[in-house]
Amino acid sequence: MDDRARGTSLRLVLPAPAAAPPVLDPAQASAVAWPAGAGNLLVVGAPGTGKTTTAIETFLVRRRAARAVQPAVDAPGGAW
């Protein structure tokens, strides 16, 4: 018995279009540019000031940078 015969339905959902990256103010941009090994950086502010946006952009910038420099490793037999 297929899914339609059991009363279930399928729905096709298209992915949302990519959103434009947010425009960061100078303070947010300097926080995103904070070097990874330079120690901790505390971002504080009132609700709605962009703390989460700053954190997400920092993560994305560092993730892109890490992917750009991953070395290719080829071990014999696929072993590490």
Rank of each mutant, 00 (worst) to 15 (best):
L24T: 13
G7F: 09
T54L: 03
N40E: 14
R67K: 13
M1Q: 01
P21L: 11
P22C: 05
E57K: 14
A75L: 02
R67V: 14
R6C: 04
M1D: 05
N40R: 11
R63Q: 12
L12A: 06
D2W: 02
R4T: 08
A38F: 04
P15R: 07
P71A: 15
A65D: 04
L41I: 11
G45H: 02
R67P: 02
D2T: 04
D25K: 10
K51P: 08
L41D: 10
A38N: 08
R11C: 01
P35S: 05
P76W: 00
D74W: 04
R6G: 00
A27M: 07
L12M: 09
D25F: 12
V43I: 10
G37P: 04
G78Y: 08
A46E: 15
A20Y: 01
L10K: 01
D74F: 08
R64L: 12
P26C: 07
A33C: 02
G39S: 03
L42H: 14
P76T: 01
R62P: 08
G37F: 02
Q28A: 04
R64A: 15
D25C: 14
R11Y: 07
A33F: 03
A16T: 06
V73D: 01
A55L: 15
A16M: 03
G50D: 04
P21K: 14
A18S: 12
P17C: 12
A66F: 14
D74T: 08
A66R: 14
A16E: 11
G7I: 10
T54Q: 03
W80I: 03
A5D: 08
L14I: 10
T8H: 06
G78D: 14
P76M: 04
A27G: 06
T49K: 10
G45K: 00
T58V: 04
T49H: 08
P17D: 15
P21R: 12
R64G: 09
G7W: 11
R6Y: 01
A33P: 05
P21C: 09
A55T: 13
P47K: 12
G77I: 00
V69R: 11
P15G: 09
V44Y: 07
V32C: 05
V69P: 10
V61Q: 15
V13C: 12
A72C: 09
M1T: 06
W34T: 13
P22A: 10
P22F: 07
L12P: 07
P21H: 12
G78V: 05
D3A: 02
P15F: 07
G48V: 05
T49P: 06
A72W: 14
R4M: 00
Q28K: 02
A5S: 07
W34K: 10
T49C: 15
A18P: 05
A79N: 06
G45W: 01
R63A: 12
G48D: 06
A46K: 12
G37N: 11
S30K: 06
P47Q: 10
T53Y: 00
G77F: 01
T54D: 03
A31D: 05
G78Q: 07
A38Q: 10
I56V: 15
W34G: 09
A55K: 09
V44R: 12
P26E: 10
R4W: 00
P17Q: 13
T8D: 03
D74R: 04
G45F: 00
T52Q: 08
R6A: 11
V73M: 01
L14Y: 12
T58Y: 07
A5G: 08
P22M: 05
R4E: 02
R6Q: 07
G48F: 04
T52Y: 13
G37C: 04
L24G: 09
P71T: 15
